[in-house]
């Protein structure tokens, strides 16, 4: 059976030589259970992709594999044409991940957490403080920069984690349930960031089951069920290689 490949491309953008993200037969098992089963997608640079699905559908697994935090059981991942499974260290500097957990140290302040991240990312010393200031201001956390993260609410932690993402200039942004615990103003903030990334040609993959709360344009929506692609929709779904009829049939029902 020829494997179906889903192409996601912003309208009007030609297909580029290396895709921002290209996966082939991407699969991951946990203790015999299928978390992700044979996913083949190709995302062009600058596209914004939403990954939807119920709990356990494989959204987080997909994002963690794209972030090189998790090795796939089978299949390949190419980011800008570089093999992310064989040489993760080559793609890591260009990836920004906002994971399910915020990965913050409770006993450090917001700015100490960001300083640590900046140093570990190899940001030159003179740039560290200005970038922390800009990032915290951007997520409206400047006034609590010197407070311990352990005392923050879940929403505030998400904002600090988002600020960590803004320290560097990732080419691929991966957001796992970014809307969790965010209030209305933070959702607006995220919309603003998505528009900014779209303008810069940054590729964004968002895993969420609250997608309709976001106002920013989404080029393609991939619906996962039990680790497999169940439906695709959106203006950027440019092509479906024949093979899975239910996917083609689902196309006209695009709701974007």
């Amino acid at each position: 059976m020829p494997q179906t490949t889903i192409f996601v491309r912003p309208p009007g953008v030609p297909e580029s030589a290396p895709a921002a993200v290209e996966t082939r037969e991407l699969s991951r098992l946990f203790g015999g259970g299928v978390a992700l089963g044979g996913l083949s997608i190709r995302i062009e640079p600058g596209a914004a992709v939403m990954v939807e699905g119920s709990n356990g559908a494989g959204k987080t697994t997909l994002l963690r594999i794209l972030a090189t935090a998790l090795r796939p059981s089978f299949g390949t991942v190419l980011l800008d044409g570089i093999d992310a499974v064989a040489t993760p260290e080559r793609v890591r500097p260009r990836i920004g991940l906002l994971g399910h957990a915020t990965a913050l140290y409770d006993d450090l302040t917001a700015s100490e957490n960001l300083r640590f991240a900046a140093t570990m990312s190899g940001i030159p010393s003179p740039d560290v403080e200005p970038r922390i200031g800009t990032a915290l201001a951007r997520v409206e956390m400047a006034s609590t920069a010197n407070h311990r993260v352990g005392g923050f609410s879940a929403g505030m932690r998400r904002r600090v984690a988002l600020a960590r993402l803004l320290l560097g200039h990732p080419r691929l942004v991966l957001l796992d349930e970014p809307l969790t615990a965010l209030d209305a103003s933070a959702v607006d903030l995220l919309d603003g960031l998505l528009a900014e990334w779209a303008g810069q040609g940054t590729t964004v993959v968002i895993a969420s089951h609250l997608a309709d709360r976001l106002g920013a344009p989404i080029h393609g929506c991939l619906q996962l069920e039990n680790g497999r692609l169940a439906r695709v929709s959106g203006p950027g779904i440019a092509e479906v290689v024949p093979g899975r009829e239910q996917l083609a049939a689902a196309l006209p029902s695009a709701s974007w």
Binding site: A67, T68, A69, E89, R92, P93, I95, L97, G99, H100, A101, T102, A103, L104, Y105, D106, A117, M120, S121, G122
Partner: peptide
């Protein structure tokens, strides 16, 4: 808080 996973992703 999953910081170790982030630690592994730094270059």
């Amino acid at each position: 808080d999953g910081a170790g996973e982030q630690l592994a992703l730094y270059p």
